[in-house]
Design a protein around this nucleic acid. Structure first.
Lengths: 242, 242
DNA sequence: CGATGTCTTGAAGCAGTTCAACCAGGGTGG
DNA sequence: CCACCCTGGTTGAACTGCTTCAAGACATCG
């Protein structure tokens, strides 16, 4: 799958792509040097501040994006304002919905985020000519599907305590693109966001965090900086088999 | 996308495929007559009784399947037995997880079901040579992803009443492969299954059904046969915008 | 026609919500 | 530089929607 990865160090590879692809294994890794060059004529690096939208629910979508840094939340909103976060995307995840020009959800930067934006038409055209690229997109969709279904179990059948532990476990295993897991991290979400991700109120999230802190399962500094003492214990509490 | 559909009536099309593909627009529609012929040497029609498993959680998977008739539930189970249905598949949906040989969930027939089983290796090989087939699989994955995320909103943010209404609305709009919606149908799931799909207990499901019945939003006969008086009203109660 | 599995109904309990007060940090302007 | 406020988080107390536990009704089938 990474047979073309050596091209990354080829001097023909566009500069914008080099710094991105060398580190991450995003969808662009499927492209040849030539394709990458062509695509890079259209791409643009963008910085998105916390809270800013990449696109809104129901809006037409004209571009895809690769996350280079930061966390993006995918949310669905009901007419009366109730909200559910249906996915968190970390670097080097791909954001976009092939085969559809309108988004059923909104994508918002949960933290300050850097993305590489790709015009939809350009990538679609390229996917038509590159089975390897289409395969990567397909694979990314399947991974997101697996994650969505895992989270359905969390939403439907876990207690508040298990939900909060599941969230912390998810962050510990996804926040750093270079490491499979990490014991200390900055929470990318506010309490409100965490509640919207877990189907809970902020008060319940707060209480459960306090309890986990009192039980010495986690340590919290400045409300945002979390240290997990033992990931296996956290996984246990979360009810996930690792 | 359906450019090859005319081949269906070609006499070279294998008999097993004709009766299936003529009616449904499943993934096989992407294949040429020749590919269909080749694949049909390996396919087998199977009848699966209510409650029987297509495959279990954590088991290796050696075959894909196309649903011809019936409803299949995809479930996830926690070590302590708590269960969540993470997807319902109707005809002509495709069952299987490309790029992975082990299943993170179990697939079980919710009703008496008929499927066309395809050996995994055969379809994988064919997908490598047919971009159109890969595209259909990709598209099916994206549709399932959309549905999973819709359901996450239901699980995380809706009340029991809204959940039950959402379930009935889902069935009304999916049970008949030939019609976009239908006002009268046999429930494909037991109360226990409905509870496992909605993250509720059977008692709560039962109580909410009773209320919807008392409010004349639905009519129920023999516990299983449901008539929806007005789909727009049901959608309203479910909190879905149609 | 009893036996069995599925569904409904009732009453009590509780996990999580709601409402409200308080706290900490950080920026602003007088 | 301090008083002020504003945002995000915590904590407490009362409430409630869903669960739990228990009993009864209904349908199906040997």
């Amino acid at each position: 799958m990474d047979a073309l990865r050596k091209d990354i160090h080829n001097s023909d590879v566009p500069l914008v792509c080099r710094s991105c692809e060398a580190r991450h294994g995003g969808v662009c890794g499927a492209l040849t040097t030539e394709q990458l060059s062509e695509l890079s004529r259209f791409t643009s690096r963008k910085t998105i501040n916390t809270g800013a939208e990449l696109h809104g629910q129901g809006e037409p979508v004209r571009s895809y994006a690769n996350i280079l840094r930061g966390v993006v939340k995918l949310t669905k909103m009901m007419p009366d304002g109730r909200q559910q976060i249906v996915g968190l995307q970390f670097a080097p995840d791909f954001i976009g919905r092939p085969f559809s020009s309108e988004s059923a959800l909104s994508a918002e930067a949960a933290t300050d985020t850097e993305v590489c934006a790709l015009p939809k038409a350009a990538l679609d055209r390229m996917a038509n000519n590159s089975p390897d690229l289409e395969r990567r997109l397909h694979n990314q969709a399947l991974i997101e599907l697996d994650e969505a279904r895992d989270w359905m179990l969390t939403l439907g059948r876990k207690t508040a305590r298990e939900k909060v532990a599941s969230f912390l476990y998810l962050i510990a295993t996804h926040i750093d693109p270079d490491k499979a897991e990490v014991l200390q991290f900055e929470l990318p979400l506010t309490r409100q966001d965490i509640g919207d991700f877990l189907g809970l109120t902020i008060e319940t999230v707060s209480r459960q965090m306090t309890k986990l802190r009192q039980e010495k399962i986690i340590h919290v500094e400045n409300n945002r900086n979390v240290t997990v003492h033992n990931l296996a214990t956290l996984a246990e509490v979360a009810g996930v088999d690792r």
